[in-house]
Design a protein around this nucleic acid. Structure first.
Lengths: 204, 204, 204, 204
DNA sequence: TATGAATGAGTTTTCATTCAT
DNA sequence: AATGAATGAAAACTCATTCAT
């Protein structure tokens, strides 16, 4: 079911994400940097990827898939809506660089870069795409809410997904601001977001 | 109060935005393309900007400022919260490329590109930064809501801003999906967003 | 007298010639292509040849030697000058790719490529070189002509060789032109060449 | 009528031919070598040519055209067939490297290299192609021969062209052999070739 | 002041060759 | 002996930036 990755592929994926976490610009990464960080020869990388863009696109996709899968699993164990959202927000805080990387990944899907084109190719090929993965988390969050009551119309569900998804996305953005380096601030905002989402779900 | 722009500067700004709207990747724009589109010589551009990144960063900033200013003005004329939000969403739909350009601009602030660094420099210099401009719109939207009732705590205001801002941002993202090429779909979602935001504001 | 070739060597030789006949550029053949076509591992090839150039040079040499030997044999059976030349021209037509390969081989001797250097090394080592082989055919063609009459001076013999050799060479070149895809055209030219050479030989 | 060449183009053409004359392999010339020899920057070359192959192909073509034009002009002044051929052979001897370069050019037309493809593109574009130029010389040589007598059939003319052309070509090849470093040897062969051609023309 | 020809540093990518298995 | 994964040197090509006109 799950794809097999060779050790060299994983090395490239980790190198790309690692460089990103160190503050590199994904649009200006060089193959030399990537393979250097990965500890393999330049030529080797080209035996596994057709070009630089593929390396980066697949690395972002792999990172997103891995992180989202893990997030999804943990979130499912939480008992109610509030707890689920809180879990996701907390995990994002704990792994800011990973979350950030997904954030970049999602952004990249809609720029016009060559990487973006490659990402789209990958997503087309994969059944459970990465953006879907992020959206899946939101859907997972909502699941169970409508077991004991009528499921809202499709439009309303779509709105709820947008509403929750957008808050998660922006929370990731806000986390990078200096202000949110403080746990107190984060905790307050987290609470407000959880409350807000619960209120929205109830209201629909 | 407002800065004076020379005609050459404006030409560069319009060229950058124009190229972006034509589908160019902002990270791979060349000076030749920009000056070609602007109808001026390469050397001339360097008389007004210190490097390529400055051209792009300032162009994005200029575009955002202009669009947000216009949006802000129009929005103020609307009588209530619902109408204001509806106005903003409608304007975004009407000017998808411009909205998209701001979206990119906001995203860029948090990538690690050279352009991003330049944007930060500009924002530091400008009192009313562009992100602020976008956030300002949100603030403008909220303004007036709290004339007849107690202003919520600063934390809650911040949450409201995040909530509204995130929905606007994600609406811009969603607008690029095929589904939202249909006016009916857009109209439904617009209504849900306006309702949702009104509910949130009331609930706080 | 004749060298022994291992099966791997032969595989390489056939691979090179095969690739050439398929339209490959001898100057841009890769080891991967050659060994792939030969059905052996890259490392194995290096057990038999010191480098890529040697593979190609020896392959061309082998092909030339083989083809010329065969041509020489067949030609000797023909009774007179006209028949001999006609035989050679006909064989060239029947095996255009092989003839072409020799043609390339001869040309290569005088370019300054690394392959050319290797070819020269081989020719130095071999008593009956390939160019000699081609020239040998010409000499074979002339042989017997001067049994019943005085052998011309060395200079004149040299001229005759050049004259015949050059016509064979150019006939091979011309054969690649569209015009000579027609048997009628080829047949006419063949006749003219045979007549011309006979006349020259008689005149000397 | 004649194309204008920029000084940079000429510099590239001379550099390529110069490098060839110094013994470089046309198939392994690097852009750095060419532009270095030409005394211009690498980037500059790419402003005038779309790629390396174009530089080399056009350089060979330019050299051939120039040399053939000059040869043609001089040859026309000679009074009879013998003198004309003698003139051409002498010029070839005097400018062995140039003649050699044309020889390579003609050979290249029929290899399968990228340069060869480029040459074919050029020839398709030009009315008086380079191979034609070489052939033109042969035709020029023959011109005037048939003023006072009946022109032979087309086939026979074609044969004559092949016969003369092939001798010129091979003479150029032979000139590179050590033996023909001697003027005496060359002079003898020259005489034999002139006689031979005259005899052939008369016999047709 | 405006220009765009010229430059070369910096990137991607290929491929001959090696060597551990 | 045979293999092919791994390597990195080398080459093509691009493009920001300069500067003579």
């Amino acid at each position: 079911m799950s794809k097999e990755y060779s050790s060299k592929e994983i090395a490239i994926y980790n190198a790309v994400v690692g460089l990103f976490e160190e503050g590199a610009d994904l649009n200006n990464l060089t193959v030399a940097e990537i393979t250097g960080k990965a500890g393999i020869g330049k030529g080797t990388a080209y035996a596994y990827f057709s070009d630089k863009e593929e390396m980066i696109a697949k690395a972002l996709f792999y990172n997103s898939k891995t992180f989202c899968k893990q997030l999804y699993k943990g979130m499912c164990k939480e008992k109610d809506l509030y707890a689920k959202i809180n879990y996701v927000l907390l995990k994002m805080e704990q792994q800011i660089p990973k979350a950030d990387c997904i954030f970049r990944f999602i952004n990249m899907i809609s720029d016009n870069s060559t990487i973006s084109k490659r990402i789209k190719d990958i997503l087309r090929g994969e059944v459970s795409s990465a953006k879907m993965s992020a959206v899946n988390i939101v859907k997972g969050v909502l699941e169970g809410e409508f077991k004991n009551r009528e499921t809202p119309s499709e439009d309303k569900m779509e709105y709820l997904v947008l509403s929750i998804y957008s808050k998660l996305l922006c929370y990731a953005m806000f986390l990078k601001e200096d202000k949110y380096k403080q746990e107190t601030e984060r905790s307050t905002m987290r609470g407000l977001i959880c409350d807000g989402i619960c209120r929205e779900v109830r209201a629909i």
